[in-house]
Design a protein around this nucleic acid. Structure first.
Lengths: 370, 370
DNA sequence: CCCGCATCTGACAACGTTGTCCAGGCTCTA
DNA sequence: TAGAGCCTGGACAACGTTGTCAGATGCGGG
């Protein structure tokens, strides 16, 4: 985390205190207060300028009925002249709804989450809500910190891609009316809506695809099994192998290795040795990219199927066969579910699983080479 | 835009009115009011339960000094028991700062903006602020709508990737103290901080690179010239050609074509005909991807340099030579600049230009083939 | 000419928090 | 033991908006 050495720290919990006397530095506080919003005009100012009452300004601003055209014009002019803009912060306090929803995901820079986030945003926009998002960096503590910060802001709803596996901390929030939908991975120890891709089925089909093309020694490189999707994909791999009656050897599997250097090492190990694998199933987009590199360097053809689509996969030689999940559909589905909750349709929590799609491009159809 | 048929519409400007009588539906309103935050406990409730004053609770919640350990314990217990969480909405209203900044970009799903957004988020986080972001979809009206909505929320600052070319509408906001930094493209008709990549220099160098490898008939495919970066890259192209004393033919240039189908057509046109180009400079990542496809299909080697790096560019055959800009650095620089403004360092608006980097991978070093 | 009604307007409280300020109780010293 | 000074706690106003409700205004009809 970056270090903030600046004086801007609005959520700072301390109040200014003089080191020697322990007295609150009143002058300092006053100066800050004075600058609040740089002295933005309020409805009161507009009312004074237009020579009308406060509530009349409110009426005009909100296009409520019951204002004569003439009064309205005067108010509009005052608004223009002063550059007034309604303070939604205050509005929110009064009305109870913030018209904003929170999205907590793993890393916005990951190409998988960009479209997902965008899809959530579009749905939110259609409902007149803004989107606040934060990245958990796959850290459960940071996830919780973010989620609770969003709850303190009184977001109307939350879309969470869980990093942790215990979300009981959300119970009081959900009880208090914060609509919540989990995406991509299920919630831990709490009953809530979940929207998932069919990781198990996708992986099983992908591995079965390799088996159908004659492979028996198939490697699996996946993320930490504590991540639900990773565990499911591993389960899918095992299921496909078992269905085909192929006993899996430990040397064929790499679990929980994420950093590219070590994924590379794991892939190299599988491809060398006395009985190397002839095909690899890559558990996510980052792994796939690394494995593509390793295979390109290793000289002989190795079949590959990856989970998650990657850009330009079709332009590589051979094209990369993938089990694609629809990130945008995940986001859209989750957000729609969220707003259905907010509409007050009291619905029992549900688990929605979206299908994956096998896209054959060449790499998954290579025959075993040794 | 999606259609919102639901009843959740918190920013709806109307108040509930009975169709026949024209009377406000008071009961309905009351019911909603009652449910405000699902009846969340407030400090008052905590105070009552702990048997202390309101301000004492505030002190505990904010870790302010002046509370005896015993009192503090009682308050903490009450907080636990009630599941109290401070309402930052109200806090914000009182304190004047919202500890949130807005980011308006073109499309979060674009792989270029993911890392940029993430970088802004990290800086914001280091300063204790949350990030609200929105996509303008390259529509100036939507940009303005978003920006003003964010201002109404009283975000402390704004990072804007402009879609429009007139930002005078931001003048009152900036005057009122909303820190503002433009990124990727300069602001229109307003004096403000801008953080840019050196599009002109990058394009010029990229094209000069092609010229240095013997090309003279070099195509340019770029975005609409009303987009500043597109215009600058075009200018860079022209400058490089002029420096080399090569007169540019109109048939070599495609401007303002963005949708993949038509980019494809433009590329195909350049590569056929009586005197086809031997090299192409692609004005952005989306164009580059399409051009790579066209070149792959066309059968003969065509040199290519693209603006913006793309994932897997090194794995293609040949690797794609690009002029890379550092999206994360853009975001980080802009956000840091923003918080410097918020620190109250009154600094004159500045234009910061970050260098680009030419990454040679093969496609830009191909000799002319005809 | 005045009353009743409809329409328009504004005073006021409330939302949940924090800053200010004062009261009361305690300790310490003369 | 009284007075000064410190520490803790609480009453109250304010932030900017919206909901409520009552008052003002105007108009038409009796």
């Amino acid at each position: 985390m970056l270090d903030a050495t600046s004086s801007y720290n609005p959520m700072d919990l301390r109040i200014p205190v003089d080191d020697r006397t322990g007295q609150h530095i009143v002058a300092e506080t006053a100066r800050r207060s004075e600058n609040r919003y740089g002295n933005r005009p309020t409805m009161k100012d507009v009312a004074a300028r237009a020579g009308v009452g406060l509530k009349t300004v409110s009426r005009v601003v909100n296009s409520e009925p019951g204002v004569t055209p003439d009064t309205e014009r005067r108010v509009q002019e005052a608004i223009e002249a002063l550059g007034f803009r309604r303070n939604d912060s205050a509005r929110v306090l009064r009305k109870g709804r913030t018209a904003s929803i929170g999205l907590v995901l793993e890393d916005l820079a990951d190409p998988f989450y960009g479209p997902l986030s965008r899809a959530v945003e579009e749905v939110a926009r259609a409902h007149g809500a803004l989107l606040i998002n934060g990245s958990s960096a796959e850290d459960p503590d940071r996830e919780q910190e973010l989620v609770l910060a969003l709850c303190a802001r009184r977001v109307d709803g939350l879309v969470v891609i869980p990093a942790g596996d215990d979300h009981r901390y959300l119970e009081p929030e959900m009880k208090a009316g914060v609509a919540t939908v989990f995406v991509d991975r299920p919630a831990g120890r709490i009953d809530a809506d979940v929207v998932l891709s069919d990781s198990f089925g996708g992986a099983r089909d992908g591995v079965a695809h390799l088996i159908a093309h004659g492979h028996r020694r198939i490697g699996f490189i996946g993320d930490m099994p504590r991540i639900h999707t990773a565990a499911e994909r591993l389960r899918g791999y095992r299921a496909a192998m078992e269905d085909a009656g192929i006993p899996v050897e430990d040397a064929w599997m790499s679990l929980g290795v994420t950093d590219p250097q070590r994924v590379r090492k794991a892939a190299e190990d599988m491809l060398s040795g006395p009985s190397p694998v002839t095909a690899v199933f890559a558990g996510n987009n980052r792994v796939t990219v690394t494995v593509v590199r390793v295979i390109a360097e290793c000289g002989r053809p190795v079949a590959l199927v990856g989970f998650d689509d990657i850009e330009l996969a079709d332009l590589l030689e051979p094209g990369v066969t993938v089990v694609a999940q629809d990130a945008a559909a995940l986001g859209r589905t989750a957000a729609e579910r969220l707003f259905r909750q907010l509409d007050g349709n009291l619905i029992a929590p549900e688990r929605i699983e979206l299908p994956t799609r096998l896209i054959t491009r060449g790499s998954g159809e290579l025959p075993p080479s040794s």
